[in-house]
Nucleic acid binder design. Structure first.
Length: 305
RNA sequence: GCCGAGGUAGCUCAGUGGUAGAGCGCGGCCCUGAAAAGGCCGGCGUGGGGGGUCCGAUUCCCUCCCUCGGCA
């Protein structure tokens, strides 16, 4: 009998956080965040972390555990998340991954290929090359060493071109070969993936309301504080930082900054949905968007079996 | 009520006697060590209603409706 592992995913502002706590309590689960930004310390309002009161009801992991100055990546996440999951299972509880970062979900479910750690200097060199000679130059270079990978990557997608070249240089093997070897939780456990789904119109309204709430709760102060610190490249990518920086720098007014936050959050949600739609293993839990957290948890319960 | 300007994509607007574009918005997609990142693709339209001229009208004419500004 395989052990049970659960995922609760969904686009931003769909209501995962509050429902997850009620649901987790009911089924005897502990929550592991599956979110690339909530891992950072000090980014509380901006990432809509669950409040301390909520976190007291059920154990939460991987929230606020990385300092702002540090870069974070999929591999670190995967390692930490798997450790937590095993730990929870050992105590006879169910691990419940909750979050909206599609790639993080994917590396947990299906694994990640093994390679050496990335070399920042090599990466920097490739990046400079791309700047000076254009990404097409990198593309042609990749085409020679790993045509299979080049076929899958668009010539303008500089980041993936760099990554593929970086892996080839470091290992001597094409990334397209390495990527074939992966294995994740889905193979060894009884995995159920629940995804909250609501009409686009409703979701966008909820995003709008959520952004307003964030500002009411002191987003401005929080981001002002964040901007005084040294932020790593990954930390500074959170939605709300560059948008409010523009306002603080006097490039536009507060109303416009708010609209930018809303716009970029909508786009983010749209990309999340593309990711989730693609995964046919997902069980969709349809919501109207007016449910209380308890009602959402009830619906999750019904799809649980 | 009179005079003037205008009604074209969700919004702001361009253009043409041969069934229409642009920016923004929006939609679809890709994703394996930056992923709240990065990249690709797509006009999504009874051209205010009705009538007329014409081989053919979004474009010209008439009329009605609506919006904005001015005069009353």
């Amino acid at each position: 009998m395989k052990e049970k592992i659960l995922f609760l995913v969904g686009p931003t502002a769909s209501g995962k956080t509050a429902a997850a706590v009620i649901f987790a309590k009911r089924i005897g689960a502990e929550i592991i965040s599956c979110d690339s930004m909530q891992v950072y310390k000090g980014m509380d309002i901006i990432t809509s972390k669950p409040f301390p009161a909520l976190r007291k009801k059920v154990p939460h992991y991987l929230i606020g555990v990385v300092s702002l100055a540090k870069d974070y990546d999929v591999t670190r996440f995967r390692r930490a998340a798997l450790n937590k999951a095993k730990d929870i299972l050992k105590r006879g509880k169910i691990p419940l991954f909750v979050g909206g970062t599609g790639l993080y979900m994917s590396v947990l479910l299906d694994g990640i290929f093994k390679t050496k750690a990335s070399d920042p200097r090599l990466r920097e060199r490739l990046y400079k090359l791309a700047q000076n000679k254009g990404s097409l130059y990198l593309y042609n270079r990749l085409l020679r060493v790993d045509p299979a990978a080049a076929l899958k990557i668009h010539p303008n997608d500089t980041r993936r071109l760099i990554r593929a070249l970086e892996v080839f240089t470091a290992t001597g093997k094409p990334i397209s070969e390495l990527q074939k070897k992966r294995k994740g939780l889905y193979a060894d456990y009884d995995v159920k993936i629940l995804c909250l789904g609501l009409k686009r119109e409703r979701l966008y309204r909820r995003i709008e309301q959520r952004v307003e709430r964030m500002f009411n709760k002191g987003l401005l102060d929080e981001v002002r504080k964040l901007l005084r610190r040294k932020l790593s490249r990954t930390a500074s990518a959170a939605i709300g930082i560059k948008e409010l920086k523009g306002y603080f720098d006097g490039q536009y007014d507060l109303a416009e900054a708010k609209e930018l936050v809303k716009l970029n959050t909508r786009r983010y949600a749209k990309r999340q949905l593309t990711w989730f739609r693609k995964d046919k293993r997902i069980t969709w839990v349809k919501l109207t968007g007016n449910e209380s957290p308890k009602e959402t948890a009830d619906k999750l319960w019904k799809k649980f079996f």
